[in-house]
């Protein structure tokens, strides 16, 4: 059935990408077709850069991304979402995918990310550290405990002995960041990479307890990948020195 679909699609170049042909292209020996990468929301800036490089090195390859909270992505992948690669913001969500039998090989840690306080430009509420998250009068955003950044936040507050009083528990780290960018909260607990991504609109405040809660980011080719060759090439790029450079430029740390 799939063969027929691809036969038809061959006539329609626009649809060719959708078939996920995984063999070598006529122009070279690199992967072609479409590669689908599911990646944690905190990779929204670094990964497209890597995708672009892989596309440049492999004419005929299209890399598409789905960015969301790692937990949402893990659920989608466990339900059979057609993804080739999964990059998670923590080990727990990779474990969800692994227990659903969808990892192909061992997941490898490619980056680390530390929590950081994000405040709007100019820091209007004069936030200085984690202790400010206990201030009732501030508007504060923290990730929901169900997503990795929320789990990290819980650990951070426990380590610091601060009982946080957030006004909202955000569904993913970028939603928390957006509220800082809009100036609607005085502070949010996000990752260092998010602060880097926001540019001038957001200021980051580092704090000592962050070092105890550094997340590992694992990446893995998925079982049943429609484009396994491209998936491997992408994972290799992410783990390479070049990949590391792009990731550290985006505010992540080397593993």
């Amino acid at each position: 059935m799939r063969k027929t679909a691809c036969g038809v699609a061959a006539v329609l170049p626009a649809l060719l990408a959708g078939c996920g042909a995984s063999g070598a292209g006529p122009g070279g020996d690199g992967p072609t077709g479409t590669l689908t990468v599911f990646a944690a929301a905190s990779l929204t800036d670094a990964f497209p850069e890597l995708g672009k490089r892989l596309e440049e090195d492999n004419p005929g390859l299209t890399v598409q991304f789905s960015f969301a909270g790692s937990s949402a992505l893990a659920t989608q992948i466990s339900q059979g979402a057609p993804a080739d690669v999964f990059a998670s913001a923590d080990q727990a969500q990779m474990a969800v995918v692994a227990s659903a039998g969808r990892t192909d090989g061992e997941p490898q840690v490619f980056a680390r990310n530390a929590p950081r306080i994000a405040v709007p430009e100019g820091n209007p509420a004069a936030v200085t550290g984690l202790a400010d998250f206990a201030r009732e009068e501030l508007a504060l955003a923290v990730c929901a405990p169900d997503v990795p950044c929320g789990a990290a936040a819980e650990a951070v507050f426990a380590a610091a002995g601060v009982p946080p009083r957030p006004d909202t528990l955000e569904e993913d780290v970028r939603a928390a960041l957006t509220k800082v960018e809009l100036g609607e909260v005085d502070a949010a607990l996000v990752y260092a990479s998010d602060v880097a991504a926001a540019g001038g609109a957001v200021e980051g405040i580092a704090f000592p307890e962050a070092e105890q809660v550094v997340n590992d980011y694992p990446v893995c080719v998925l079982d049943g990948a429609r484009n396994a060759a491209a998936a491997r090439a992408f994972v290799d790029l992410v783990l390479s020195a070049e990949g590391r450079r792009v990731l550290t430029d985006a505010g992540l740390r080397a593993p």
């Binding site: 929901a144 169900d146 957030p166 006004d167 909202t168 528990l169 569904e171």
Partner: peptide, 16 residues
């Protein structure tokens, strides 16, 4: 936003 008791409605609870 999403906070139990003040703004977390059922659809939000379901999503999380």
């Amino acid at each position: 936003g999403n906070f139990p008791g003040t703004t977390q409605t059922m659809p939000l609870a379901v999503y999380l």
